[in-house]
Design a binder for these strands. Structure first.
Lengths: 226, 226
DNA sequence: TGACGATCCGGACCGAAGTCCGTTTAAGTG
DNA sequence: CACTTAAACGGACTTCGGTCCGGATCGTCA
C-alpha cells in the first residue's frame, strides 16, 4: 500500500530551468520507468527516499516531511534528497506521480466517458469530476506539493491536464480561446480552492461537482445534463 | 511617490486564527486609518517599516525585502516587524493595501461602469478588466504577497473582491451557484496566472481582456459586447 | 582485472523566516 | 507627579530549505 505511491516519477533528475514541455506518450503512461539512466546506487536511494517520505506522511502528516527527516529516515545524506528531487516540492510531486499517471492513462486511453469514445462534451464533464475527486482524495499532499506561484503552471503534470482539457475544448467550443478557457476551468479545480470550499466552507463534494457541470454547460453554451 | 504605497493597512495587528470576515463599510473605504488604537511608538515604527520596505523594493526588487533587512533599514528590531505584520506576506499585503482600497472604493462608490449606476452586466465586465490591469501593474509585488495556499481565500482583500463579484453575479445569473461562480471568475484573474500568461507565454493584455469578456458572456449566457 | 572518468554521496554551511522572553516605555490613574 | 500595567521592543535562538565541494562509488573499457 505504501508502495503504490512510491515508484517512479516524471520529474527530471534535476531542475533544468526551461525544459521544453514534453507530453507523455501513450506508451510511457502507466509504466513505472524508475528514472532510466540512473546509476544503481542512485536508483536505490531514490526508492528508499520515496518510501521514507511516504512513511513519514503516514506517521506525522505532510508537515512531518522535512528534507532532513526524510534523509535520516532513508539513511541517506541530505544533499542526496535535493540532488534527486530538486526541492521539497519535487519530492512531494514525486509521491503524487503514480496517481497522476493513472489519471492520465484513464483519460488518454481508458474507458468512456473519461477516455476516448464518448462525445467530447461528456468527456469534458467526466474530466472535471475525475480531477475533483482525485484531488479531494489526496488533498493534504496536493496542497503541500503546490509549487511556488511562478512555477505553478509550468509543471509537466499540470501541463498534461491542461493540454487534454484544451483538446476537449477545441472540439466543444470551436470559436473560443480554448487555451485561456482551459486555464479558467482548471483553476476552478485548484487544490487550494477545493480545500477552501470543502474544509473551510464545509461544502459537500456534490455541490462542487454540480458547479463543475454547470460551469461546463455555460462555457460550452449547452444545456446541463439531466 | 514612495508614499502612495506606504500608508495604512486593513490587516489585524496580529493574526487571529479565525477572525470573522468583516466587509469594509463605505465610510471606512478610502480613508487611511493608520491602525487606530496603536500606541504612538508602534504607529511610528509601523510607518517607518512600510517606508523602509517600499524603499527596499525600489532598490533591490521584491526579493530584497527580507524581514531583517526591513527591520535594519527602519532601525527597528526584527521582532517588531513580525509583531506588526504577522509574517512576510502580511508586510507585503500592507504595501498593497492602498491600491486595494482604491479599487474597492472605485467599484463600491466610484463612477460607472465600475461603480453603481451601470447595469450589472457592464459592471461585471468592468470589474474584471479593472482587476486585470491593477494586478498587471503590480505583478511582482502581488506575486510575492501571495499567501500560502490555505490562506489564499480567507484574506479580507480577496474576500472583498469576491463579495462584490458575488453580488454582481446574483443580479446577472439568478439561477446559478453564484458563490462558486465567483470563485471561478476570480481564479481566472489570479496574479500567478496573469504572470504565467503575460510573462511566460508572452500573451498581450488585450487577449486576457478579451478572454474575460468572453468568459463573462458565457457564464451569464449573454452575447459578448460589440 | 585494473584503472579512469563520470556520477553520486554526505554533511558542514548559509540565509532567512519565525519564536521567545527579559527589558523598556507609553499612557492612563489617584 | 509618582505609580502601575498593558503594550511594545529587540535581538538571540531555533528550524528548515537549499548550496557546496572534497571524497567515495559505479560502470566501462582496455
Amino acid at each position: 500500500m505504501l508502495y503504490a505511491v512510491v515508484m517512479s516519477s516524471a520529474l527530471p533528475p534535476f531542475p533544468k530551468p526551461h525544459e521544453p514541455f514534453e507530453t507523455p506518450s501513450l506508451l510511457e503512461v502507466g509504466t513505472a520507468p524508475g528514472e532510466p539512466g540512473l546509476r544503481a546506487d542512485a536508483a536505490r536511494n531514490r526508492a528508499r527516499l520515496l518510501e521514507a517520505a511516504a512513511r513519514l506522511i503516514a506517521e506525522h502528516g505532510v508537515a512531518g516531511v522535512t528534507m532532513e527527516a526524510v534523509a535520516a529516515a532513508a539513511d541517506v545524506g541530505k544533499g542526496t534528497v535535493f540532488r534527486r528531487f530538486g526541492d521539497r516540492t519535487g519530492l512531494l510531486m514525486a509521491l503524487l506521480d503514480h496517481s497522476a499517471r493513472r489519471l492520465q492513462a484513464d483519460f488518454l486511453s481508458g474507458p468512456p466517458p473519461l477516455g476516448p469514445g464518448a462525445p467530447p462534451l461528456e468527456r469534458l464533464r467526466a474530466f472535471g469530476v475525475a480531477v475533483l475527486y482525485r484531488t479531494a482524495e489526496q488533498l493534504d499532499l496536493q496542497l503541500a506539493a503546490q509549487p511556488e506561484p511562478t512555477r505553478r503552471f509550468v509543471h509537466p503534470a499540470a501541463g498534461a491536464l491542461r493540454a487534454h482539457l484544451t483538446m476537449l475544448l477545441r472540439q466543444t467550443v470551436p470559436g473560443g480561446d480554448c487555451d485561456l478557457l482551459a486555464h479558467t476551468l482548471l483553476a476552478s479545480l485548484d487544490p487550494a480552492l477545493i480545500h477552501h470550499l470543502t474544509r473551510q466552507c464545509e461544502m459537500p463534494m456534490e455541490r462542487l461537482e454540480a458547479a463543475w457541470l454547470d460551469l461546463v454547460a455555460r462555457v460550452t453554451r449547452t444545456d446541463p445534463p439531466d
